[in-house]
């Protein structure tokens, strides 16, 4: 069982640094665009094993799709953000923003 202590209101699938990085990278691509595994690896700076693990967690949540295609005889793995994934990431950043503004609010009140 996971021992992650997630901030209230934050999507626990996304709120792990490695997966967050992947979600950010995919969200920067225009909607519908796919990226190959090696390029994604470059963009987020992770080892193949590590990236693969996190991709599968994101795929289980239906936030990304992983497709295997062939270029000639070479298999190429493409990763793309699903519509649900893009929405989840937007919700996540929105929730984060709310947490942050609430925290700022509290600290201002403390000072008063």
């Amino acid at each position: 069982m996971t021992v992650e202590r997630v901030l209230p209101g934050l999507d626990s699938v996304i709120h792990a640094q490695a997966r967050l990085r992947v979600m950010v990278a995919l969200s920067v691509l225009p909607p519908g665009d796919q990226v190959t595994f090696p390029r994604l690896q470059d963009l987020v700076g992770m080892t193949p094993g590590n990236l693969s693990t996190h991709l599968h967690k994101l795929e289980d949540a239906s936030y990304i799709t992983i497709t295997k295609a062939y270029q000639g005889r070479t298999p190429v793995t493409y990763v793309t953000l699903t519509r649900a994934g893009r929405q989840a990431f937007e919700d996540y950043t929105a929730a984060l923003g709310e947490l942050l503004s609430a925290a700022n609010h509290e600290s201002v009140e403390e000072k008063l």
Binding site: P30, D33, Q34, T36, R39
Partner: peptide, 9 residues
């Protein structure tokens, strides 16, 4: 655009 495919490419 290396390793990127899809509508924008």
């Amino acid at each position: 655009g290396r390793g990127v495919a899809g509508p924008s490419r």
